[in-house]
């Protein structure tokens, strides 16, 4: 009976610890709000911009509004002398962690990139145009893993404890559909998919506050770079469509 009770206590305390760990991490991660803008380094094209494309809609209902943390697993190695505990938490990035609204950022970045490398003029929807472009996201997520581990070593009457936190590189999955129409006829439609892992420079640190801040920055950086890559691909394709339509 006593052993049973002890097992219950251990199990309940492990569950409570894992729940509080994820809540605590989420509470600290929610404190940070980071910028997402990136550097445009594509080649500046000096082409004729007589084609006008109206920016129709950018529909993104798939990007989470808030960041979330969930438990992946909890490992305990309770040896007599050496005790190791590891908690792995899955973190999903959300709008609340970035300074700018993601859809607005996407539109602005698209417009800026068009001015550099686009062979067309991007105009507002209500103006007269040759084409209308609509973008709808079907996937937009940035996930990562955060690990907290502790080691306790007993040696007779003495013991040593060691805690460590590790942030893993963020992974972005971006999927969106681009549709270009002319007089209500679809002239171009393509699905773009970006899967990218962003290297994390400061993946472990003694300063957990700095590590957690950098962890959020890494996720924003991942989303930022994937968006950049996606926008550049779209503009390259549209340039090609325009060049082909001019040849016809």
């Amino acid at each position: 009976m006593t052993i049973k009770k002890a097992i219950y206590v251990v199990v309940i305390s492990a569950i409570l610890t894992s729940c509080s760990e994820s809540k605590m991490l989420l509470k600290t991660l929610k404190k940070y709000q980071v910028p997402i803008e990136y550097l445009h380094d594509s080649k500046i094209e000096n082409c004729n911009e007589d084609i006008k494309i109206a920016f129709g809609s950018v529909i993104n209902e798939v990007f989470d509004s808030v960041m979330s943390v969930s438990k992946i697993n909890h490992k305990v190695l309770p040896f007599l002398v050496y005790n190791y505990e590891e908690m792995n938490l899955g973190v999903k990035f959300g709008q609340s962690a970035i300074e700018q609204n993601y859809s607005d950022f996407f539109k602005k970045s698209f417009a800026d990139e068009t001015q550099r490398s686009g062979c067309f003029d991007l105009i507002a929807y209500n103006q007269a145009s040759n084409f209308v472009m609509d973008i709808s996201f079907d996937t937009c997520s940035v996930t990562s893993k955060y690990q907290r581990n502790s080691t306790v070593i007993f040696l007779f009457l003495a013991y040593t404890m060691y805690f460590q936190e590790i942030g893993f590189p963020a992974q972005t999955t971006l999927g969106l559909n681009v549709k270009l129409t002319k007089d209500n006829n679809v002239v171009f439609e393509k699905h773009y998919s970006i899967n990218k892992t962003q290297s994390f420079l400061n993946n472990s640190s003694n300063n957990s506050a700095k590590l957690r801040q950098d962890f959020v920055v890494n996720m924003a950086e991942a989303l930022s770079n994937s968006t950049k890559e996606c926008i550049e691909q779209i503009i390259t394709d549209i340039n090609q469509i325009i060049a082909e339509s001019k040849r016809e």
Binding site: V34, Y38, L39, D41, I44, N202, V217, E221
Partner: peptide
Amino acid sequence: YPDNELLKKIIAIRLRYIRY
């Protein structure tokens, strides 16, 4: 300096430095 590819790489690192 649009043709300077090395500068683009150097500045990309600067931006990471500022981000973090």
